[in-house]
Computed example of a mutant assay.
Amino acid sequence: MKNFYTLAAFAAGANALVPRGGSCCFHLDASGGMTGSVGQLSDGQNRIGDNSLSPAQFCISSDGSITDGNGRGCILTPPTTQFQCDTGATPTPGFSVSSSGMLEFNGSPDFIACETGQNGGANIHTTNSSALGQCEKIMLNADSCSAPPAPPAPTSNNCQTTLTSGNFEFPHLIVPIDSKSPDTAFGTQFNGTVTSTISSIFNFDIPQSDSGKSCSLVFFFPELKDLVTSSFSFSGDGQIDFAELSKPADTKTTFNNAPSVSQDLGDITVSPGHSFVVSTFSCPAGQAVAFEMKNAGSTNLNFFQDFNPSPIGLFITVC
């Protein structure tokens, strides 16, 4: 269990933000301790849980400031840091939408929702305080504004098939999709799965520091005896089709709304005890990219993605 939390912290801490130019508009949905769409009172207070309110629209600019659908500046009111939008207000900068679609403030996706006692609604804040009532931790998902990746340019020289500190990128979102449950969003998982009906999408955030470098998409598949903190189950012929997608997945991705394939990278027959270089390309620095693993034969594979010795799963190595 400790390893699961370590892995989650690693993935969340490394999540790069999506750069953007101009303005992009979206709606917000809350997850966590409270769920539901974010609506808005007539005075600009943003609320979760009040079913009498229609979903509010927000627009984010390149400097990280937000305005609502009425053109009001969205601010964090002192001293309680309530997120609301006021007429004539200069919007608070520092907001962004991550590659996985999460609204963040100063790089953090953590918000709190605090009960108001009115129509089941809760106000949104960035920090807790004694002045607030009953509060729950939440995250806010934007239904658009994640920047699409530019197609990586292929290169001829593969990067290394070993993981050392600073030379690899870990997937920040692993999303299974199932043709038997085409409208079910399973959210992000710790495991990658490939079966006759289930495929897995892996999001990678490539930092700006990788500019000018080469990236290799590598599938690591050690033998079971070599694993310390992970495990896998495997049967079938091992044939897996790898593909680059047109944009990243998010926690609401389903089989029916999954991103389209922008480039099929071919079938590889995998077996334990080997590493497989799927593709090598110029690193798309500062962008998010997504790749899919799906069955191309009779493969049944389920593995816990792990960078501890021996690493297992889909990684991007950098050189």
Rank of each mutant, 00 (worst) to 15 (best):
S99C: 14
G117P: 00
C215V: 03
V38T: 04
N51E: 12
Q84E: 14
F219W: 07
Q189C: 04
M139A: 15
F232R: 07
P222R: 07
F281Q: 09
A150T: 15
I316A: 04
Y5G: 11
F232D: 02
S146L: 07
N308E: 15
Q239A: 15
G273V: 03
G39V: 03
L173V: 03
L53A: 00
F95R: 01
G192T: 07
G94W: 04
F281T: 04
K137G: 15
P171T: 10
I312T: 01
L76F: 01
I112M: 09
C85D: 04
T299P: 00
P222Q: 08
D183W: 09
F220S: 04
S31N: 11
T188K: 13
S129K: 08
A9H: 10
G187E: 01
V278G: 01
T280Q: 11
F303A: 01
F255T: 01
F111H: 02
G107M: 01
S98M: 02
D50G: 06
G238D: 00
N167V: 07
A296H: 08
S146K: 11
T155V: 15
D50H: 02
S233F: 10
S52P: 04
S100K: 12
F221V: 06
L41C: 01
V277N: 13
G13K: 10
P78Y: 13
